[in-house]
Design a protein around this nucleic acid. Sequence first.
DNA 1: TACATTTTGTTATATCATAACGTTTAATGC
DNA 2: GCATTAAACGTTATGATATAACAAAATGTA
Lengths: 157, 157
Amino acid sequence: MSFPAPRHNHRHCIQKAMNTAEEKSKACGLRLTEIRRRVLEILWQSHIPLGAYEILDLLPDDGRRPAPMVVYRALDFLMEAGLAHKLSSRNAFIGCSDPSHDHEAQFLICDECGTAAEVEAKPIAKAVEATAASAGFQVHQHVVEISGICPNCLPQT
Amino acid sequence: MSFPAPRHNHRHCIQKAMNTAEEKSKACGLRLTEIRRRVLEILWQSHIPLGAYEILDLLPDDGRRPAPMVVYRALDFLMEAGLAHKLSSRNAFIGCSDPSHDHEAQFLICDECGTAAEVEAKPIAKAVEATAASAGFQVHQHVVEISGICPNCLPQT
DNA sequence: TACATTTTGTTATATCATAACGTTTAATGC
DNA sequence: GCATTAAACGTTATGATATAACAAAATGTA
């Protein structure tokens, strides 16, 4: 829920994410195939959102570079499965930090280091709902992407 | 502040928007040139956000279609001047409905008819600020785009 | 095994956006 | 007014992001 610290043990993040993904897939009858798993692993190499073509570049190159389609399909699956999110304001993708339940997420994205943190802020969701309701608007989804400077990049006081 | 009604007199919207733009430009020493004015007029043809290439298609075709660059430059100017906004979740652009003052806007976008309404919802902005603050994050900008069904497209009760 | 469904591989193409550079137009100082 | 400078525009090229369509392979199921 808080912003990822500069030198946390990121192995834990990766391991937790992959374990959760495996479990959720098994539990829900989703097919977390090799390519999908590899894309998810790449997303979890850091807390910095990646573009589809960056992911493509990071895919192990077994002699031949796969087509973009391959990555987009994997991303579609991961998003559908609630294992990844798209950041529209950056055309980039990031692993979901809490796939255990369906939720509307919001994002804090650092302009300095590129790190993005997923938050689940009830007050934002409520304010969004209230605003929509007062306009007679029925919400399906919301995109909330907040950019600025993360605590790690802010000059220390 | 409320959602545009299905058959409001849209001429008023256009006229008001263009007048405001002229005034603001004059007041602020901005150069609302021919091409910029035409792009703004096109944006205001409806309350439906348009892609850059749609705008291009709607530019009067004086024998020869201008390059995309022309539209993107005009859009950059209009956004810089606070006369238009980009909807990141759609890669589309829309005229600003209240250029009179700087503000953080949020958008309600109908999945059915495509109409988008700009709102300036203080509670959302506050919730965003509070959420960021509690993570030690300093906000520069926020993108809030809410999609769903607008009151005009909701089945009448 | 046979069949249906899902996933993958592959080619092609659509869509969105900017770099770079030369020319034209407009603002500024004299 | 006229030279100088800055801003805007035209144009070509290219980069970046994303999807359509169809055949082949893998998987689930009877």
